[in-house]
């Protein structure tokens, strides 16, 4: 364990040499997490809209349910999903276990609660009169909901980025339903775990550095998210 420094040096050599295996893992990670967040946003946005804008019995319970799911340990979800996707499980006939599709679906499920919660907060923060305003200016019900969603754009972006952050940094789901298969379903976190196990610490460190860089960049994005809308405005400004 005295050779940490040497490991770090080798890690940087790998990073700057553009090692194919290394960047293959990075690309896979970004792709899986990206598609997962896209799917989660597709499911989560309408649910968040209902929970934020409609009134119905048991709404508080549903919201609490999603809020408490935010903290679900990824291994627990991974285990549940393994049992679901396993050939002997209810969705086993699909044969998706140990494929990228399983990781993407799993991560999408993992981040859906966090996406929903943040989007709800963002929509609820919008002045409720905006909905009426859009309607009286001639918007249909759907156009009016879209107007509200647009007002909540910052929070919505924040929710997406936070979801991406969680997806990229999780281990349990990718390991248990992805199987950490070299070149197919290994992502940054599972690959770090593999190379640490094998004692190939330079590779593990290089992957760890890249993961940290990505997570750090995402957090910078969160800060910048507030400004994104302003840029949008300038770009689409009429005159």
């Amino acid at each position: 364990m005295v050779d940490i420094l040497g490991g770090i040096v080798q890690a940087f050599q790998l990073i700057f040499a553009g090692d194919v295996t290394l960047y293959g893992i990075v690309c896979r990670t970004l792709l899986f997490s990206g598609v997962a967040v896209l799917l989660a946003a597709l499911w989560g946005t309408p649910i968040a809209m209902v929970l934020a804008l409609k009134h119905f019995r048991g709404k508080a319970i549903v919201k609490t349910f999603f809020n408490s799911l935010i903290g679900i340990p990824t291994v627990v979800l991974g285990l549940i999903l393994y049992l679901v996707f396993s050939k002997s499980g209810p969705l086993g006939f699909l044969g998706l276990l140990y494929t990228p599709a399983a990781i993407i679906l799993g991560e999408a499920i993992l981040v859906t609660p966090i996406l929903i919660s943040i989007t709800i907060t963002a929509i609820e923060a919008v002045d409720p009169e905006v909905l009426l305003l859009a309607k009286t200016l001639g918007a249909s019900d759907s156009q009016a909901s879209m107007a509200v969603l647009k007002e909540a754009l910052n929070g919505f972006l924040l929710g997406n980025i936070a979801s991406f952050n969680r997806a990229i940094a999780e281990l349990g789901v990718a390991l248990l339903v992805g199987g950490n298969i070299v070149g197919l379903t290994d992502v940054l976190t599972t690959a770090i775990s593999r190379y640490t196990q094998r004692g190939e610490l330079d590779f593990a460190i290089a992957l760890g550095i890249l993961l940290l860089v990505i997570v750090f960049a995402i957090n910078l994005l969160i800060i910048a998210a507030r400004k994104v809308k302003i840029i949008f405005e300038l770009w689409r400004s009429p005159q």
Binding site: L39, L42, W43, T45, P46, M49, V50, K54, S142, S145
Partner: peptide
């Protein structure tokens, strides 16, 4: 309604 349309899109995708 919008959320129904979006949900439909989500399920379809």
């Amino acid at each position: 309604q919008t959320w129904q349309k979006l949900l439909l899109v989500a399920v379809l995708s």
